[in-house]
Design a protein around this nucleic acid. Structure first.
Length: 431
RNA sequence: GGAGAGGUGACCGAGUGGUUGAAGGUAGCAGUCUUGAAAACUGCCGUGCCGGCAACGGUACCGAGGGUUCAAAUCCCUCCCUCUCCGCCA
């Protein structure tokens, strides 16, 4: 959520930029509620001050009947004032939370994902002298993907992944873990991209796969009920990304400046209901209800967070380059970056079997928007306290597996293993 | 699942109705001393919101939410969590 003081001081900008992101919020209404809330707060605090003074005067004990009567009277007045304040406060908070983060100036203004800007393309698309297949056909032919039995057990969009594809997936995780925990590798990425960030390695983490509703709400990620699975009879929701359970790790905490940046590389199985997307992107493993993902999440000092964002994108590119997968980088437009984001980048891998680029990575630049609700702060060396910045980005999901199958396919239906993954799959060169 | 103990500031830890926003200690910051450092000593040292240029004032917060009372960290209720022992189990 945004700082209300910032909204008061920049009402026009906030209104305009919210509109650019496609958010229908009325800043004038919000400020009216804000003023009303402040006025009522003032009244309540004045009454409380009176109550406290009264109690203070009676500290010795033995209050007179008259004093007790007066105390009751003030108490009732406080209660009445609070009853007026509460609905105003609720409306105020509801509206405030609805105001999206402000996009940076370099974010293209757009109305839909069609207005995202391709900022870079890398790699040569492979040429084939046979009819290329998509990853689903390749995988099903090899017995690596069983959708029918997955559906029998758990419903559509749940699958069995089997055989060498499973080994390839774990090779992908191991590959990423080993690079992101290697300070020398990170240092090289930083130098190659002229970045000004720490080379502190990422800490691997296996977070809880579920969280309480209040925690999900605090992350500001709108995990609407139609998108998120809930456990029956429990106040627990299944995560839709490791980010959802790693970001709130320091909920309500004040961290020491010298510990920054705090970098995590977390693995979870994620669950998404994907309501409203049936018939869209259904092939293979592209949009399943259950998938595995390795996610980068870091907590940063405000002055370092933008560089950290670029660093995460650079890491994503490095990983894709190591795999030899052609990709393009998208600077997402205002309509597509999402409410909490000030900037967003997608990476799309080339899928020859489909003849198009498909999203495999996202990088989110969130400033303090998420930290404000989570109340995750840093105590600076001078003793002052301020909100941290959070950054997150995909390291790998399972989608790059689809890209590997399609880009590295052979005429006989086998698949060459990218050089970078071979050490992590027992030295195999072909599966 | 059963029995018991407990959740207080960055950390440890006092505090069972009013003079406690909270003793004491650690860490941190500033200083004295020292060639320098350490030690010792002195002072400062929670967060949010409202008002104020500021000094400061008001208010809220002692796991969360309710309640009792003129007055709650302290009493009552519900929930969450942690620890110990027993049971069960990957």
């Amino acid at each position: 959520m945004l700082d209300i003081q910032f909204i008061r001081d920049n009402a026009d900008v906030v209104q305009e930029k919210s509109k650019q992101k496609g958010y229908d919020v009325n800043i004038a209404d919000l400020l009216k509620l804000d003023a009303e809330r402040r006025e009522l707060t003032g009244k309540i605090e004045a009454l409380r001050a009176e109550r406290n003074q009264l109690a203070d005067a009676l500290k010795g004990g033995n209050p007179s009947q008259e004093q007790i009567e007066r105390g009751r009277e003030v108490k009732q007045q406080v209660a009445d004032a609070e009853a007026l304040w509460e609905p105003v406060n609720d409306s105020f908070l509801t509206l405030l939370k609805r105001v999206p983060n402000m996009p940076l100036d370099d974010v293209p203004v757009g109305a839909s994902e069609d207005d995202n800007v391709v900022s870079k393309q890398w790699g040569d698309r492979p040429q084939f002298d046979f009819e290329v297949k998509n990853h689903a056909d390749i995988a099903e032919a090899r017995g690596w993907l069983d959708k029918e039995r997955g559906a029998k057990i758990a419903g559509s969009r749940f699958v069995y992944l089997k055989g060498d594809l499973v080994l390839l997936e774990f090779a992908l995780w191991q590959f990423a873990f080993s690079k992101l925990t290697d300070e020398a590798v990170l240092g090289q990425i930083i130098r190659d991209n002229n970045l000004d960030v720490s080379s502190k390695p990422f800490t691997p983490v296996l977070p809880p796969a579920v969280a309480k509703k209040a925690v999900f709400e605090a992350t500001g990620r709108l995990n609407k009920e139609e998108q998120t699975y809930k456990l029956e009879d429990e106040d627990l929701w299944l995560n839709a990304s490791a980010e959802h359970t790693i970001a709130p790790m320091y909920l309500g905490e004040i961290l020491a400046e010298e510990d920054f940046p705090l970098r995590y590389i977390g693995y979870t199985t994620a669950f998404r209901r994907e309501a409203g997307t049936y018939g869209k992107d259904m092939e293979g493993i592209i949009r399943l209800h259950q998938f595995n993902k390795l996610e980068m999440e870091s907590f940063n000092l405000p002055e370092h967070s933008l560089q950290e964002h670029f660093f995460m994108v650079a890491i994503q590119e490095y990983l894709m380059q190591q795999l030899g997968l052609p990709y393009q980088v998208l600077t997402k437009c205002t309509a597509d970056i999402g409410g909490p984001n000030a900037r967003g980048v997608d990476i799309e891998a080339w899928l020859p079997g489909q003849g198009k680029y498909r999203e495999t990575h996202t990088a989110d630049y969130i400033t303090d928007y998420q930290a404000r609700r989570m109340q995750t702060k840093v105590r600076r060396r001078d003793g002052s306290v301020e909100l941290v910045h959070t950054n997150d980005a995909t390291a790998f999901s399972q989608r790059p597996l689809a890209a590997i199958l399609e880009n590295y396919q052979n005429a006989d239906g086998s698949v060459r293993v990218p050089d970078a993954l071979q050490p992590y799959i027992g030295g195999k060169t072909i599966i």
